[in-house]
Design a binder for these strands. Structure first.
Lengths: 110, 110
DNA sequence: TATAGTTACCACGACAGACGTAGTACGACA
DNA sequence: TGTCGTACTACGTCTGTCGTGGTAACTATA
């Protein structure tokens, strides 16, 4: 079976992550599992890709982080929440996707 | 209007170019114009992107070049021809596109 | 008791495709 | 004379992805 290459997905990791934050905050490990489940194991995001996307998107103001320090065993977990700016960015990217898809499909045979 | 970003198209320039070589050899300037026309001005490939794609794909064995030295005014023009390996690569990338599109659309709202 | 697996991250550096800037050179046209 | 179109090329920068490796606590299995 064909596999999804990083060059192909590049630029979409941001909107995949933002989609999963639309309804409620979440954290890295959970998002990673959701991507895997929702894509039916077709796309498994690399941990480094995911966490560097968090850092970048927080810097860009698309998401905000907060830490849950009260987990069992004294563990911490960093949650991310989408901002209004992030929602705008997500919407714009969805429109861009529609346009891009139309363009690319002109060059796809069959 | 939304514009196509480089990150989004990244990884597809190769198949866009290969598509335009499927039926006959062509050269940089012509391919650049064809992309623009076929996409109805929605995607205008950068010259540096196009010519570096030629170099890379020739190195990978997807295309072969030959020079037409008999143009008016003593000018030269470098043509590119798709190889059987390039055709296989193109086909594989089209399949990958179908899969990728399905995955991404699970994360697109509306 | 040992050890492998799951959860939940982070740091560092490398890589490759896309792009910005700039330059070459010829012909046509105003 | 100067701009536009044709047809490239060189050089360096940027950025998202990924490989490698590390930390640390709990949980199931042998």
């Amino acid at each position: 079976m064909a596999e999804i290459s990083s060059d192909v997905i590049r630029g979409y990791n941001d909107i995949i992550i933002l989609f999963l934050l639309l309804n409620s905050p979440s954290y890295g490990y959970e998002i990673s599992k959701q991507i895997r489940t929702m894509s039916e194991d077709k796309y498994i995001i690399k941990e480094t890709t995911l966490y560097s996307a968090f850092t970048r998107m927080e810097k860009n103001g698309f998401i905000e982080s907060f830490v849950d320090e009260d987990l069992a065993g004294g563990k911490k977990r960093t949650y991310y929440r989408i901002t209004p700016v992030g929602r705008d960015y997500y919407r714009a990217k969805c429109e861009e996707w529609t346009l891009t898809k139309e363009v690319i499909e002109k060059f796809i045979a069959g």
